[in-house]
Simulated scan of single mutants.
Amino acid sequence: MRFRRLLPYLLLIIGSVIMLFPFIWMVSTSLKAPLDIFNLSIIPENPTLANYIKILEESMFIKWFMNSIIVALITTISVLFFDTLVGYIIAKFSFVGRTVIFILILSTLMVPTEMLIIPWYMMSSEFGWTDTYWGVLFPGLMTGFGVFLMRQFMEQIPDDLLNAARVDGMNEYAIFFKIAVPQVWPAISALGIFTFLSNWNAFLWPLIVIESPSLRTLPVGLSFFSSGEAESQWHLIMTGATISVIPLILVFILLQRHIIKGITLTGMK
């Protein structure tokens, strides 16, 4: 009986070690000198920050980092505002074609991203958006998944609560921001986290639409850095990869409760 109770914990420990080992090895390699990177010891014998100083001073890493921050923050703010607003309108307002509009929005989830690349690029070329921030941003400013998620949560808000606010003289904007939004805050938090992570890690579209090295996002910049400037300098490649995951770790540490709650509630909906 004792073994049966300990077995799940043992399996979790084994799984955690397997999943964390590449990350630990990456951080360890970033702290090693070039001649020590093939040393099999996980803990560096002579840890150094020279790799971090070199990559920050001799590459465009800071510029790529800021580009990713700009893209991830703007798209996240846009998705949270527009998707929440559209979800609220579809859930709480009756108008002709509401169901059709919602079905059309859901249908966008069935189209693979790879099939949208060509229309996106044609649109970018037509409007002169290639090799610009706007060219990277516009495909992610609204998402069908976000509208669907927020609509499902907005439907759970009692209509009597909203009607009571209207009777008290509140306008629709105040009702949305002061009553509806606080009721679905866990869903908004989860959507914001998922949106930020997906845009931070986006690679294919920024690779296609951006040509200038100074406008590259971090994943694209690291790809060119590892195949060009750094070549086989694995200590520098691992250093860049380690810095790139710092924002994601901070987001998880600060918003872990919302991530878990959001995933749970999303599954329920």
Rank of each mutant, 00 (worst) to 15 (best):
R2H: 06
R2L: 05
F3W: 01
F3R: 08
R4N: 12
L7Y: 01
L10G: 10
L11G: 03
L11E: 02
L11S: 00
L12V: 05
I13Q: 12
I13M: 10
I14C: 14
G15S: 04
S16R: 01
V17K: 05
I18E: 13
F21G: 07
F23K: 03
M26H: 08
V27P: 03
L35M: 15
I37Q: 09
S41V: 09
E45T: 07
N46K: 08
A50R: 11
N51R: 05
I53P: 03
K54R: 08
I55V: 13
E58Q: 07
S59C: 06
M66T: 10
M66Y: 04
I69S: 00
I70Q: 01
V71A: 03
A72W: 02
S78I: 14
F81W: 14
F81S: 12
D83Y: 15
T84D: 14
L85Q: 13
V86W: 10
Y88K: 06
I89K: 08
S94P: 02
F95P: 00
G97N: 06
G97M: 09
V100F: 02
I101E: 03
I103P: 00
I103N: 03
L104D: 01
I105L: 00
T108D: 03
V111F: 04
V111M: 06
P112K: 02
T113M: 11
W120G: 05
M122G: 14
E126F: 15
G128T: 11
D131M: 11
W134Q: 11
W134G: 05
V136L: 04
L137A: 07
F138L: 08
F138S: 03
L141M: 08
G146A: 10
G146F: 12
M150G: 12
F153K: 10
M154D: 09
M154E: 10
M154P: 12
E155F: 14
P158S: 12
D160R: 13
N163G: 14
A165E: 09
M170I: 06
E172H: 07
Y173N: 02
A174I: 05
A174C: 00
I175W: 00
F177D: 02
A180W: 06
V181T: 11
V181I: 08
P182A: 12
I188N: 03
A190D: 09
A190E: 09
I193E: 07
F194L: 07
N199S: 01
N201T: 13
P206K: 00
L207W: 06
I210H: 04
I210Y: 09
S212P: 02
P213S: 02
L215E: 11
T217G: 00
L218H: 00
P219L: 06
G221M: 00
L222Q: 02
L222W: 04
S223M: 03
F225L: 00
G228C: 08
A230L: 02
E231K: 14
Q233D: 09
Q233W: 06
H235W: 11
L236G: 06
T242H: 03
T242F: 08
L250M: 11
V251C: 07
L255C: 11
I259V: 15
K261M: 13
T266S: 13
